[in-house]
Design a protein around this nucleic acid. Structure first.
Lengths: 222, 222
DNA sequence: TCAAAAGTGTTCTCTTTACACCCATGC
DNA sequence: GCATGGGTGTAAAGAGAACACTTTTGA
């Protein structure tokens, strides 16, 4: 079966940049391609838009199919469409990005995707297509949003200590932060609350565990 | 001639939101549609992507063809692609936005476009397709960027007074600003310079005329 | 000489940053 | 009892907001 049009049409795809914080590094998820073009190369998860689904739905579906990642809040990044970005045909790609907690990383292993792996941003392999442009833009956007929104909370698991949270912010921003000022700031935003439980771990005073009050919400701050 | 594909392909278009400040109001440019669907309705300038042009080129071309507006700095806004946004077929639209000086508004009249007109944002007619969603998003983006970037300078003509500039900022933000603080702020950014000429206009002290130092550049401030 | 917009500094307030010690636990 | 990370307040500096009068021109 073929589909015919009076004028030429490009193909439309989505690509998704998924960040997490793992082993003291900001990481992103890549898929090793099983097909040409760029067979064997690492690429962002993503794929072709179906005619009966919204663009964001396409991104969510591809992410689930290729990487076993579900239920994340996707935000549109930008649309990439230079003429030769795909050797097969003209392809317009709508890029999305999302942040997931480091403890969801385990889900990753259970997927049936060909090969999915986390890479530290500081040590990425060469990427297929124009995916390094997409990653670069995602990095810029993330870094900007970290400083003027509550997006960073999306990195956090169901329960975490304030020191965990500070570590995530330090890794994502690349700066060290003052403990007292950071805590004052976080608590003043009124976005996290005590769970009532403490985490006893190691030879030191147990830390209060917190949870995010409205996990799905991203607010602009400042 | 027809174009055939193994899988269905959506059409891809661009839509452009052009802002200006005119008669003490923030305005945008609309085109009255000459064809179905939505014949006779007002819509954003825009049109179908050609296979041999980049997406941004498409936006610039449509803007020139339909509205006679040229040489503006276009910034990608977002991509809209809900399933039923166009009754003809599945259409994915990449939206752009730009700001132009109010004195370029005159160019508008000289175009051969069917019908192009400036509307104050506060008094828009009903729009075709999902264009009011696009406009809403553009408005949010503009308002955000006005507060943390130098994008507002793009509204300014080749020469202007600091009072002109303040007026533009007040209109775009909807707030009144303190004259001394505004001037201190603008001059501290080092983005405008004196032209050396003064504007004598009306029964009052002549005002120094300024120009933007790097007109094409948008910086993040604060 | 009056009206109308241009131009110009200082003070106060609030936000942000810098900084050091005691606490609870496991070994 | 000592090593380890958890938890807490205050003071100094910097950024942002408030505020009123003199100048130059045309009519």
């Amino acid at each position: 079966m073929t589909y015919s049009y009076d004028y030429p049409h490009p193909a439309v795809t989505t690509d998704i940049v998924i960040f997490t914080v793992q082993d003291n590094a900001l990481c992103l998820l890549l898929i090793r391609r099983g097909e040409d073009p760029y067979k064997g190369k690492w690429a962002l998860p993503g794929g072709f838009l179906r005619m009966d689904e919204d663009i964001e739905h396409c991104a969510a579906r591809e992410l689930a199919e290729e990487a076993g990642v579900q239920g994340v809040y996707l935000e549109q990044l930008a649309t990439f469409g230079t003429i030769d970005r795909d050797p097969r045909e003209r392809v317009i790609s709508v890029a999305y990005y999302a942040l997931i907690p480091s403890d969801d990383v385990a889900l990753q292993a259970g997927t049936d995707a060909a090969e999915a792996q986390w890479f530290p941003l500081s040590d990425l392999p060469p990427l297929a297509f124009d995916h390094s442009d997409i990653v670069r833009m995602a990095q810029q956007r993330l870094s900007a949003k970290m400083s003027y929104s509550t997006i960073g909370l999306q990195f956090m698991p169901a329960a975490f200590t304030l020191s965990d949270l500070q570590r995530v912010y330090e890794i994502a921003s690349g700066k060290t932060l003052d403990k007292r000022n950071f805590r004052k700031w976080v608590l003043s935003l009124d976005l996290v609350e005590e769970t009532g439980h403490k985490q006893t771990q190691g030879a030191h005073r147990p830390a209060m565990l917190y949870r995010v009050k409205k996990p799905s919400r991203i607010d602009i701050i400042k």
